[in-house]
Write a protein that binds this DNA or RNA. Structure first.
Lengths: 211, 211
DNA sequence: CCGGAAATGAACCAACGGGTTCAAGTTATT
DNA sequence: AATAACTTGAACCCGTTGGTTCATTTCCGG
């Protein structure tokens, strides 16, 4: 999120470049994206790109990590609904539905795809992106689930493990319905996938009351 | 699996080329893999490659689809254990453990990664690979689960939906434990992930006896 | 409004790699 | 043995693209 390098050039150009880079990389893939296109998309001249970032590789790294941080914010926000009081079951369905929507969004999907698809070239990025998004979401969700256990809405269990299971169900449902992302998934359907996941999750983890 | 084009050149060379191509693509990624390397890996001269396949793109397509068909065979084999008689719960754990091992294997992981990572260049391949592996496995598993429902080992449910849930749990567990595949997963751990998935699955779907 | 940093565009370089060609050697088939 | 198909290796062509240079213009802080 923060890296304290002495920035060169105007900051707004830099962020425009990184955002454009991510879009172009996502659309064409790393190798097929040429710096020229990225510069155009950013509304900037090619030398300007090289004034801000040393080379194409760092362009990829930085733009991807920035996207990961943006994704993290959105994922966290989706789970924030679980902090509000109210019926835990409906809150869970709502929050996870929202989470599924975010996970199915273009930006988040592209992020994961780009990291995975270029693992050969950027091995560190896979783990780093995973840490900043999936892993972070898992622990955040585990925290929320722990409270639900205490409140009796969920049966006694290990929150981390349960969070992993719930996220697996969501991811899996999204993958299956979109055929690995080859079919565009409308927001409503993504939300439905999330709610479906919650339903099964509650079958396994629900408290006595919700069974 | 079969495509009836009039084959040119010696058949053994062709299969060697496709196998080598898949290995090189998996190791370096599509764009970074050069035809020269593939020819070397196959123990063949470059023009020979172009004698069998028109260009690099078809080289990728064919090698990937061939790998998908190989994967399909292994996936089906893993589920075949469910046909044997015996305690359904242990059979399920064993079969899904084996399935997880196959899913975590280099070849199957690479296949998925290559298809997803080059979706921009080969959009059709994503759906096709998904159909030949994940989707096929899902329906095969659904068939097995249906029998388990009839035998009373599982509670009444829609087999397709249940199969999707079980596979989600397996995939998710593998992704989480390997950090999206960035950490190599030993076979034993993969198997454990599969068995863990079955455990939760049975919590949600187990018959009265297994609860 | 002034001065230095930053942005521009155009031209340029060099490496890389897909794809072809060709003459010579090898393998099957009849 | 003869013939046709296949393979080989090496050289070659050429488009693409990452990265640089530079003279000129634009922008922003003081």
């Amino acid at each position: 999120m923060i890296d304290g390098g002495a920035r060169r050039g105007r900051a707004d150009k830099r962020t425009a470049i990184l955002a454009a880079a991510f879009r172009v990389f996502a659309a064409r893939g790393y190798a097929q994206a040429c710096v020229r296109d990225i510069a155009d998309e950013a509304g900037v001249a090619k030398p300007t790109v090289y004034n801000h970032l040393t080379d194409k590789e760092s362009l990829f790294r930085e733009s991807l990590l920035a996207a990961a941080d943006r994704a993290r914010v959105r994922l966290d926000a989706a789970l924030d609904g679980l902090r509000a009081p109210g019926d835990p079951a409906v809150a869970l369905a709502r929050a996870v539905g929202e989470l599924a929507e975010v996970l199915a969004s273009d930006e988040v999907r592209s992020l994961r795809l780009l990291a995975l698809g270029n693992a050969a070239l950027f091995p560190e990025l896979v783990g780093e992106a995973h840490r900043r998004t999936s892993a972070a979401t898992a622990t955040a969700l585990a925290d929320r689930l722990a409270r639900l256990v205490l409140s009796g809405a969920l049966r006694r269990c290990e929150p981390d493990r349960a969070a992993g299971h719930l996220l697996s169900l969501v991811d899996g449902a999204l993958d299956a319905r979109s055929a690995w992302g080859s079919r565009e998934l409308p927001a409503a359907e993504a939300r439905a996938a999330g709610e479906d996941a919650v339903e099964v999750f509650l079958l396994a983890y629900g408290g006595q009351a919700s069974e």
